[in-house]
Each structure stands twice: as structure tokens, then as C-alpha cells.
């Protein structure tokens, strides 16, 4: 559990982070969203003490971080940054092994850990491992950066705009990877981003920041349903709010068993984890008012347009 208690950072009389109190549960992914200059990166860096708070405390699992030596603290916390910050004079493998080496792991342990991580992130250890950062593609470098952050099995991972420099296709892939890895390892993640769509897609809870203060801290569905301030609403983009909301909910929630009364729909069967947004999109695109959705327990269910529209408006 990460606790920030009345944390502030003041530079030259200006509060970049202004009295922020947040509690983040273990194993969750929290996104901190805001425009540039909102203080979100500063907030993140106060967790691993790259920035020392002017006032307030940060606690990790009940322990005050201020009393732990900064390097020791940081070795226990994974850290990923936008321009990946890989060490240009080290190979990908050596980059990934940075923290284990700092911690004095045995060489064989480092090597096997590096292999394990590279495999988990779909990087071929024998091909990518000996390459230098400038020989990697943007997506590969980003994954090496994530692997480096995870190397010493941190329970907390800080990510500062980790996907900012990637093109849309690779970014989607990287987001999916993060989701998968986070689920598998149960790591607590704090992700700083300016992209609300990314936050909605990945986060368990979203903290919206503006001018150093938290405007709203809530699960994505609540953020979309009830934006606390006009600024949050603006970040969401009024236009496709309903669609964003639908994209959070599985279509299976409103599916009915394939009853004869409805008349069996034809056309493709959507996968069971499809969201309501995907179901609606399929209907619009194929000109139907109902689609089938796979059901692991039996025959495909039916999702109707009316059911989606009803579900798309939060009570």
C-alpha cells in the first residue's frame, strides 16, 4: 500500500504539487492524468525520492520512505521513463541487469533473471540481448526499459509517460503487455500519462491532476460517469464519453441466452471478453440491431441494441 500524506513540492515559491493525499492499494494500477505542468511527474518522483517533498510524507507498506537511504529505496522500486533512458554504452541484457548487479546478485542469477524477463516481454534473449540501445527499435527499447525496471522483482513500479514516444500500433501492443505483466506479477503500478484513453484502458483508479492538486480520484467508470469538475470533463472529451463508458463494460453483462423468441441472429460471434463498445461498433458496422457473443458455458448469447443503449447511460 502506498500512502501520500499531504505531500507538497514548492519550487521558488510556486507549489508544483500542492497538498496531495492519496492511498493506493497493493496490486492495483493507478493512472495519474493531467496536462503538462500539472505536477504529475513531480508527484511520481516524490515516491522514489528523485524529488524530495517540501512537506508531507510518503509511506510504502506503512514505512516512511524519508528514512530509507534514497539509492536503497529506489532499488526496490521499478522506474520507467518516456525516453527509456537506457544506458547507451551497455547492451540490452546488461541494461536489464542493472539493479540486480547493484544489489550484488550472483552473476548466474542475474543472467537467468535477464533471460526470464526478456522472454516474458517477448524479446529474444539471444538476438536482442547483445544489442546496444541504438540498435533497438522504439518498441524494443521501451520493453527493455520495462524489463530493466522489473529486474529486481519490485513490488512497486513507477512509469512516467512510458508509451509517450511510441507510434499508435506499438503503443497499443505495449499497453497490452503492461496489462498482462501487471496481472501476472501483481505489481503495484503508478502510471503517469496525459492520455485519458490510456488511463481508462489500463487503470483500476485514475487520479486527475491540475495545477498540483488532485481534481478527482476514482475508478475509470466513475470518472466517466460523474466527472467531478469541468476540467475532468474536458480531459474526457464530451463527444465520445458514452462510447468510452461502454468500452469499460463487458458485453456479456447484458447478454441473454440465445432465446428463440428473439429470433436467432446471424453473422459472426464476438469473443466472450468483448466490450459493449465493441458490440455496438459491430452492430453499426454490419447494420444489425443484435449480435451474438460467445459464452463459454453454452450456446452464444445475444446482445441487443436497446440493451446497450440502456447500459450506456450511467444511473
Amino acid at each position: 500500500m502506498i500512502e501520500l500524506r499531504s505531500v507538497s513540492k514548492v519550487y521558488d515559491g510556486v507549489a508544483v504539487v500542492d497538498d496531495v493525499t492519496l492511498t493506493l492499494e497493493r496490486g492495483t494500477l493507478t493512472a495519474v492524468v493531467g496536462t503538462s505542468g500539472s505536477g504529475k511527474s513531480t508527484l511520481l518522483r516524490m515516491v522514489n525520492r528523485l524529488v524530495e517533498p517540501t512537506s508531507g510524507q510518503v509511506l510504502i507498506d506503512g514505512a516512511y520512505t524519508a528514512v530509507i537511504a534514497a539509492p536503497e529505496l529506489r532499488r526496490k522500486i521499478g522506474y520507467v521513463i518516456q525516453d527509456h533512458g537506457l544506458f547507451p554504452h551497455w547492451t540490452a541484457a546488461r541494461n536489464i541487469g542493472t539493479v540486480p548487479v547493484l544489489l550484488g546478485w550472483r552473476r548466474a542469477d542475474v543472467r537467468s533473471r535477464v533471460r526470464e524477463l526478456m522472454e516474458m516481454l517477448q524479446l529474444d534473449p539471444d538476438v536482442i540481448g547483445p544489442r546496444f540501445p541504438h540498435e533497438l527499435s522504439g518498441g524494443q527499447a521501451q520493453r527493455v526499459g520495462v524489463a530493466r525496471a522489473l529486474a529486481a522483482r519490485p513490488e512497486l513500479l513507477l512509469m512516467d509517460e512510458p508509451f509517450g514516444a511510441l507510434d499508435p500500433v506499438i503503443r497499443a501492443q505495449a499497453q497490452a503487455d503492461l496489462h498482462r505483466v501487471q496481472r501476472r506479477l501483481g505489481t503495484t503500478v503508478i502510471l503517469v500519462t496525459h492520455d485519458m484513453a490510456e488511463a481508462i484502458r489500463l487503470a483500476d483508479r485514475i487520479a486527475v491532476m491540475r495545477a498540483g492538486r488532485i481534481e478527482q480520484f476514482a475508478p475509470p467508470a466513475d470518472i466517466i460517469a460523474k466527472p467531478a469538475t469541468p476540467f475532468v470533463a474536458e480531459l474526457l472529451g464530451e463527444g465520445d464519453r458514452a462510447f468510452r463508458y461502454l468500452s469499460l463494460k463487458p458485453a456479456a453483462d447484458v447478454a441473454r441466452p440465445d432465446g428463440a423468441a428473439e429470433g436467432a441472429a446471424d453473422g459472426p460471434v464476438l469473443p466472450g471478453h468483448a466490450t459493449m463498445a465493441e458490440a455496438l461498433s459491430e452492430m453499426i458496422w454490419t447494420g444489425r440491431d443484435r449480435v451474438r457473443i460467445a459464452n463459454p458455458d453454452g450456446d452464444p448469447g445475444i446482445v441487443t441494441r436497446e440493451a446497450l443503449i440502456r447500459a450506456g447511460r450511467p444511473e
Partner: peptide
């Protein structure tokens, strides 16, 4: 030395000497 590299070094927990 690029800022991102310095930030990463600190963030990985290197001491100033390291």
C-alpha cells in the same frame, strides 16, 4: 550525458559515485 540517462541512473538506485 542525456538527461533521461541520468534520471534512469538515479531512478535505478545508483549512488552518485556509482
Amino acid at each position: 550525458v542525456p538527461r533521461a540517462v541520468m534520471l534512469a541512473a538515479d531512478g535505478m538506485g545508483m549512488t552518485p559515485r556509482q
